[in-house]
Nucleic acid binder design. Sequence first.
DNA 1: TCAAAAGTACGATCATCGTCGTACAATCGA
DNA 2: TCGATTGTACGACGATGATCGTACTTTTGA
Lengths: 109, 109
Amino acid sequence: MGIDHTTKLHHPERDEIELPGVLHALSDPQRLEIVRRLAGSDEACACGSIKLGLSKSTMTHHFRVLRESGVIRQKREGTSKLTQLRREDLDARFPGLLDAVLSSEAVPA
Amino acid sequence: MGIDHTTKLHHPERDEIELPGVLHALSDPQRLEIVRRLAGSDEACACGSIKLGLSKSTMTHHFRVLRESGVIRQKREGTSKLTQLRREDLDARFPGLLDAVLSSEAVPA
DNA sequence: TCAAAAGTACGATCATCGTCGTACAATCGA
DNA sequence: TCGATTGTACGACGATGATCGTACTTTTGA
């Protein structure tokens, strides 16, 4: 029944990634900012290196939403957790979507 | 042009359309289906011609979310209300986004 | 061995969302 | 005018969401 948060990190397979879930994950301004920062640095970076002025537990929440929707991949690395965008998976499943979302930053209100 | 006193409906201007709002509007499966049907028929079509098995008031709600986020444009036409996608505005503001959303999973389970 | 660092779990709180039913308003055809 | 069609307003309700603080776990390094 649902996802076990206590054992392993759950990542959906590429073909399990659902469009509404991805759109929902990206529809939150804070998560959108996280995704933009991840897209900015090509390599995986630690959760804690992204600072948005939110509490640690709120950050955990946002990273979980992004991970479980298939937007990011996370793995442990020492005491940190490395996070990276699932660019290839997203591009394969929803061609052009991520690029459209990321490039829209260049057209600010 | 006959129809005019329809301007009570709130539509954001093109440059007022916000990405999180659009993503949120599209993140609901029912609204996604509405958008797909609108994209299927080139001309504006009446709200009531789109049947999803939801109540009238729920449909009104979904159309309002889509309209206020800038995804659709609506105008009165007799007792009906004509609805159409704001393709040009969306393409101008978020190039590639709508195409990416529409071209993926056009036939959901 | 112990303390700091990084992140998670859990419960709480308050807001938003999706859905409905009922009542109402506007328009058109007969 | 009347009734049918089409959609809205409003209130309710349960579900989900974003946020926080506190306590906890895991790992590293001194």
